[in-house]
């Protein structure tokens, strides 16, 4: 879609963060995803104009990084960790069960556009395995049933809250804006740490 004057001025403010403007390409791509849901041709052309790059150069960067999507994902994009540790502890079962439950394949989107599924690599939460991410928010210690409930809730417009994250799960587009460096004011919501994070401290203090 066409970008508004306000959106274009936000892009200018993103570019202004950096000593050299080409460095803004990644937050600009996140920002385009926050508007269009994925990296559209219009978005690539505008970034190219702004950074004085050929569209081929912008596309080359966009296609290198897996978080930039070349086609629409669901309003709730579900990433299931199937790297070794999570896979062994149940991630493989979760991934297979959820695909079957939704009737979609890896990288597929449900027909209502609500949920998409992708197998992901290690997401730095191994002490909370098996780990599932939705719009890159943490859902820790998942089971097959909990993830089925999660995607059913998401399709009904009522997903559960992340384990370590804001009180309410935000949409893919809303979270893409956060990744572009645009604050949504929710940093103070949610726990400071989960139980495994605190376990060593607790033991050091003599706790069980």
């Amino acid at each position: 879609m066409a970008f508004t004057t306000e959106q274009i001025s936000i892009m200018d403010s993103i570019i202004a963060r950096y000593p050299r403007k080409r460095s803004a390409i990644m937050p600009l791509l996140h920002y385009v995803q926050s508007i269009d849901g994925y990296v559209t041709n219009e978005g690539i052309e505008l970034i190219g104009q702004k950074l004085e790059l050929a569209t081929a150069e912008v596309t080359a960067v966009s296609t290198f990084y897996t978080q930039y999507k070349s086609k629409p994902v669901g309003e709730y994009h579900v990433g299931i960790c199937t790297n070794t540790l999570c896979a062994v502890m149940g991630g493989d079962l979760i991934f297979d069960a959820v695909k079957e439950h939704l009737g979609i394949e890896n990288d597929g989107v449900t027909s209502d556009g609500k949920v998409s599924v992708e197998h992901i690599e290690c997401n730095a939460a191994c002490d909370y395995a098996p780990v599932v991410m939705v719009n890159w928010e943490f859902y820790d210690n998942q089971t097959v049933q909990s993830v089925k409930d999660l995607v059913d809730g998401a399709r009904a417009g009522n997903p559960p809250a992340p384990t370590r994250g804001p009180k309410t799960l935000r949409s893919w587009k809303q979270n893409s804006a956060v990744l572009a460096g645009i604050s949504d004011g929710l940093a103070n919501e949610g726990v400071q740490a989960g139980e495994p994070t605190l376990l060593g401290l607790k033991k050091a203090k003599g706790g069980a």
Binding site: H30, W136, R164, G165, V178, S183, G190
Partner: peptide, 20 residues
């Protein structure tokens, strides 16, 4: 000039660092 290059798959951590 300094940068913190954080991975993109951790939205809530991005919020916390940005706010900080």
């Amino acid at each position: 000039y300094a940068f913190i290059y954080i991975r993109g798959e951790v939205t809530h951590v991005v919020r916390r660092v940005q706010q900080a």
